[in-house]
């Protein structure tokens, strides 16, 4: 397969879904992302970006969350077909 199967969360297109593979970072940041439900296996939808392109609005489970681009970059996802 030639297409990239791994990317980071901030690279998803609007409306695209991705499955979390891993969360990078360390200590509190990482733990916090986990505690909020961003853990491996979770399917995340990129809802939209704020008018200034940052932060991002994502949805997973049954809720919507705002996350900064720099933090989304810590989350490796596998983009899912639409």
């Amino acid at each position: 397969m030639t297409t990239e199967t791994k990317t980071s969360l901030d690279k998803l297109r609007q409306g695209q879904k991705g499955k979390v593979l891993a969360v990078a970072g360390y200590g509190a940041i990482r733990r916090r992302l986990y505690d909020l439900g961003l853990h491996a296996g979770e399917v995340i939808t990129m809802v939209k970006t704020a008018p200034l392109k940052d932060p991002l609005e994502i949805s997973f489970g049954n809720g919507h969350v705002s996350i900064r681009r720099s933090e989304a970059a810590l989350i490796t996802v596998e983009p899912l077909p639409d």
Partner: peptide, 11 residues
């Protein structure tokens, strides 16, 4: 800065 990321729920 403390290391708490800005992750905020949009209810």
């Amino acid at each position: 800065a403390d290391d708490i990321p800005f992750v905020m729920e949009l209810p």
